[in-house]
Computed example of a mutant assay.
Amino acid sequence: MLPEIVGRDAFAALVIRTDYDDESAWRAVVAEVSQPWGLNGEYEARVHLVDDPVWAGAAPDAVLGVVERDEELSVVFVADKVTMRSAHRALLALDTFVEDEDLDPMYYQELIDSPPAREFRTTPAAVHDVHVNLAIANLDFQDFTEAALADPEGVLRPMG
């Protein structure tokens, strides 16, 4: 059973490592996600890293099962096998939003017919753009998903 994540500052992006095959790749992810961000690097990177082998091989659904209890978290970033093997170290961004159980039947049918994407890939440099904009409801998850899909490699890059 995966442990509960404790001590995360609400303003810190959550990055969970699930692949332990390449330590240098992980260090590269950590270095990039820890860089100041914004147009001129004016913002300090705030990130909560989970680097515990108990998470090794954890599937996205298992990660979501743990983090869904954090009501202030709108996205979690996973450093998985794809992350560690890709040149751009693209993390898997997972939508943590849970639909209300009392959905309007028409809206519920729309969700069944065309469910919104719940994940996309993002470079570590774009993590903070995603985290902050979702936290303040400036953009929604679908906005980022569409931007990632517009990229030739299907990866969200830093904004601006």
Rank of each mutant, 00 (worst) to 15 (best):
R89L: 14
R89P: 01
R89N: 10
R89A: 09
R89E: 02
A90Y: 05
A90S: 15
A90D: 15
L91I: 04
L91M: 05
L91W: 01
L91C: 02
L92E: 03
L92R: 14
L92A: 05
L92I: 03
L92F: 00
L92Q: 07
A93Q: 01
A93W: 00
A93Y: 03
A93E: 02
L94F: 04
D95I: 00
D95W: 01
T96Q: 09
F97D: 10
F97Y: 10
E99A: 14
E99M: 08
E99Q: 11
E99F: 13
D100V: 00
D100W: 01
D100H: 09
D100I: 08
D100C: 09
E101L: 15
E101I: 04
D102K: 13
D102C: 10
L103V: 07
L103R: 08
L103F: 05
D104A: 00
D104W: 07
P105A: 06
P105N: 00
P105L: 05
M106F: 15
M106R: 13
M106A: 13
Y107T: 13
Y107G: 03
Y107E: 08
Y108W: 06
Y108G: 07
Q109R: 03
Q109P: 02
Q109W: 06
Q109S: 12
E110R: 07
E110L: 05
E110F: 05
E110N: 13
E110A: 12
L111G: 14
I112C: 08
I112H: 09
I112T: 09
I112E: 04
I112Q: 14
D113M: 00
D113F: 04
P115Q: 06
P115T: 01
P116L: 02
P116K: 10
P116F: 06
A117R: 04
A117Y: 13
A117E: 15
A117Q: 06
R118H: 00
R118A: 09
E119P: 02
E119M: 11
E119N: 07
E119A: 11
E119W: 08
E119R: 12
F120A: 05
F120Y: 12
R121P: 04
T122N: 03
T122V: 12
T122Y: 00
T122Q: 02
T123I: 10
P124I: 10
P124A: 13
P124V: 12
P124S: 14
P124R: 03
P124L: 15
A125D: 11
A125G: 09
A126T: 15
A126H: 02
A126D: 06
V127F: 05
V127Q: 04
H128R: 13
H128Y: 13
H128M: 10
H128K: 06
D129Y: 08
V130F: 13
V130R: 04
V130T: 11
V130Q: 04
V130D: 01
H131M: 01
H131L: 08
V132A: 12
V132N: 11
V132W: 05
N133G: 10
N133A: 13
N133F: 11
N133R: 15
L134K: 08
L134H: 01
L134P: 08
L134A: 00
L134W: 06
A135T: 14
A135S: 15
A135Q: 12
A135C: 05
A135E: 10
I136L: 14
I136F: 13
I136M: 06
I136Q: 07
A137F: 14
A137C: 06
A137S: 12
A137D: 11
A137H: 03
N138F: 06
N138A: 15
N138M: 11
L139D: 01
D140W: 01
D140A: 11
D140P: 02
D140G: 05
D140I: 02
